[in-house]
């Protein structure tokens, strides 16, 4: 680890000023950044600790929505009664992530901004376009069992590892951002970028912008499910995860939402599959078709080929489970 300096600003204005310094980075729960610093994948020269900023509340927003402060921990968020009642898929997604110890430490904003767990990204001795732009992607022709089948590029097929963000994508969350020039809101779908030719650019945040909150709009009707498929029962990243919502009236689907994790460089919303479902009668064929639509255009790279069929099957299953929750 390289030597660095550290400060703990008192308010958000001071935090965004502090991070303007070259080589500075915000420090949240540190569950990912500190690991990356130890292997010198991240080498900030100055850390701006934002964990004690006054951003630790979950406030009611209009029409049943919630405004989640950036430093609310994953544990607090998953256990919040309002989250569990109004946005159960979010609580489930959080509880399916990491371990109890990590959830106690990890923050809401930090979870959104965590970096990929691609093996080659973690090994500075191997080529990686995300770490060293232009050096090449070791995963493309390497061991890519955990990598993306959707949204990747020749430059990078790393996946975004978050569970929380998948549920937030399905819930149409918005991200509140502050910088020296003021605050803005962006849709969660617009927070993360696809790699294209510049995989080192992972988000649409400008340099020095601080996430201050995530806003959940009015809770949608219908049954909610978060299904995470993984190699062991806990403490493993998703092979495939699905946040699904289905609203049923008179045995017909009136609304559906599908977001996938573990398959793409960002939380992957399957809008075409959602549209396909609306108006359909509730049956397994409709869900299977939606599963297929959700992986339309997916491309495997060898070791991860199985994710395509696994994702389609898991989407279908999650939709059926969501529909069964609030049928009639």
């Amino acid at each position: 680890m390289k030597a660095f300096t550290y400060e703990r600003p008192a308010d958000t204005a001071a935090a965004v000023r502090a991070v303007a310094r070259p080589g500075a980075k915000f420090l949240g729960g540190g569950t990912n950044l500190l690991d990356l610093m130890k292997v010198e994948v991240e080498t900030p020269t100055h850390l701006v600790d934002v964990t004690r900023l006054p951003l630790s509340d979950i406030d009611d927003a209009p029409n049943g929505g919630l405004r989640i402060g950036a430093t609310v921990t994953n544990s607090e968020l998953s256990n919040d009664k309002r989250v569990r009642e109004r946005f159960p898929m979010l609580s489930l997604a959080l509880l399916n992530g990491a371990s109890g110890q990590l959830r106690n430490q990890a923050t809401t904003a930090g979870n959104l901004l965590q970096r990929t767990r691609c093996y080659y990204f973690y090994d500075p001795s191997k080529p990686c376009n995300k770490r060293v732009p232009g050096s090449g992607c070791s995963a493309l022709n390497g061991y890519n069992r955990i990598h993306a089948v959707l949204g990747g590029s020749e430059a990078c097929i790393a996946v975004h590892p978050s569970d929380m963000a998948v549920a937030m994508a399905a819930l149409d969350a918005e991200v509140e951002v502050q910088s020296i020039s003021g605050t803005r809101l962006l849709k969660i779908a617009d927070l993360h970028r696809l790699p294209g030719t510049s995989p080192q650019q992972e988000t649409n945040l400008a340099a020095g912008e601080l996430i201050t909150a995530v806003v959940l709009p009015t809770p949608p009707g219908g049954g909610q499910v978060y299904r995470k498929v993984r190699d062991r029962a806990s403490y493993a990243f998703a092979l495939v995860s699905v946040a699904a919502l289905v609203e049923v009236k008179d045995d017909h689907i009136t609304a559906a939402r599908i977001a996938l994790g573990g398959v793409a460089p960002k939380p992957w919303r399957a809008l075409d599959a959602e549209r396909l479902l609306v108006g359909q009668a509730v049956n397994d064929d409709a869900f299977a078709a939606a599963g297929e639509a959700a992986v339309a255009g997916a491309q495997g790279h060898g070791h991860n080929d199985f994710k395509i069929v696994l994702a389609a099957r898991t989407v279908a299953r999650a939709l059926a489970d969501a529909a069964a929750q609030r049928k009639g």
Partner: peptide, 13 residues
């Protein structure tokens, strides 16, 4: 390549 305990899986509780 999977040279840490996040990538090298053993059973958890």
């Amino acid at each position: 390549v999977n040279n840490d305990l996040a990538g090298y899986h053993v059973p958890v509780h």
